[in-house]
Design a protein around this nucleic acid. Structure first.
Lengths: 221, 221
DNA sequence: CGAGCGATGTCAGCGAGCCGTCAGCCGCGC
DNA sequence: GCGCGGCTGACGGCTCGCTGACATCGCTCG
């Protein structure tokens, strides 16, 4: 699951990248307003963390442009402590949530989970599909109540498919969202991964759409 | 179980309400000092979360009035980060615990449970997981009733994991919360510490989630 | 002041698990 | 029946985390 980090303070950006990576996301960082707008407009992210004080192009302007262009990617804005005006403006411009700096990584992750979930239309951090239950908080998947250990990549794959259930996901999309666009593999690594996940979670969770990709059945979204 | 939330920042109040509700409490919010005092004095709550900077009537004054009137409802006060004076004053005025803002919902819930438990007459804040018992008050850990001496760092590690049981905690997060983000170690100090704690408390308390971190099984606290 | 001890960071080695690759097979669709 | 896309079992390189050993530091006691 890819997340765009638009933050010009290198230290904060590095912290964010690390925290996100450890939480299982793919973090892609930009430090410049123009870049941020371009990436957010052309790439598909699960969420965007946006600092309002970017050079070259202001965060609020970026956000407005995205929304005017029809982009509904959930956006979490970072604001300076106590600046209420900024927060209100941000919400008005279409932000899904805000977080005052300095912040705790854990809180950021919680809010991020929240807006990602909201945008996907789910209500809780636990999703059940048939016998399979996925708990984002524990980063744990269970089958009929029995916890099943998944490796990091297996978990990423499973959670991405489950979060986008009811929709066909192409191998290319999986590749990009599991590994990040920079180092996409051209082998059948995804297929192998799919196989391993099926072996652990049962063969019925993930269906193959020959020639198109994979799909987890669910609410017809 | 009803909890009164006295907080004038609407956003924080809303977050609190949501988090408390999800944790199974009934949250009732007031944003005004006079209202807070009245409600706390006439209604019966399991606990009260009190921001000190309320309009119309100061939080400390409210707290003192309650206590003078004989109200023993446990009170958790919210303070600004780093303002030690406020905390001391709050404890003196009869608060049961304090929490610096910004806070993590999980930690708030943990502390809330703690003071509720304490006020209900249970032997202070004791958590048992399998054979292991952790007493936060005495900073004492026991295995099958036998006290086990832990070094300061070992105790910090164990208590942090136990306090956040049911959730995967990354090595980075442990590093930050055990040492403080200023001097994070890049070595395998955490791994060594984990090993030492396991040797003393048994190998089953802390599970390793390769690639993610560590987790103590238990209810999602 | 020096010896002793406990606490803790560092290091190297090791074993397990992870994961990409490949080759061959299967089965769907034509 | 053929071809191609997908599946699977095997393998090996590699990383991660665990462990025992050692160095260092601070404290205490003689």
């Amino acid at each position: 699951m890819r997340v765009l980090v638009a933050e010009d303070d290198r230290r904060i950006a590095a912290d964010l990248a690390r925290g996100l990576t450890e939480a299982g996301y793919i973090a892609e960082c930009v430090a410049d307003g123009e870049d941020a707008w371009f990436r957010g407009d052309t790439e598909d992210y699960a969420a965007i963390i946006l600092d309002l004080g970017l050079p070259r192009l202001d965060g609020l302007t970026i956000l407005k442009r995205w929304r005017e262009g029809g982009r509904r990617t959930p956006v979490l804005i970072l604001t300076a402590r106590g600046s209420w005006a900024e927060r209100v403006d941000g919400i008005d411009a279409g932000a899904d949530d805000y977080l005052p700096k300095p912040f705790q990584m854990e809180e950021l992750l919680a809010r991020l989970r929240s807006i990602v979930r909201r945008s996907a239309g789910h209500a809780s951090s636990v999703v059940s599909i048939g016998d399979v239950t996925l708990d984002e908080r524990q980063m744990q998947v269970s089958v009929r109540g029995q916890p099943v250990p998944l490796s990091p990549l297996e978990y990423r794959l499973a959670s991405y498919l489950v979060l986008h259930r009811g929709r066909v996901v192409s191998q290319f999309e999986l590749n990009e969202n599991i590994y990040g666009q920079d180092d996409a593999h051209d082998s059948n690594a995804i297929e192998v991964l799919i196989g391993r996940v099926r072996k652990k979670l049962g063969p019925d969770l993930i269906e193959t759409r020959r020639g198109f990709g994979y799909i987890v059945p669910g609410d017809g979204a």
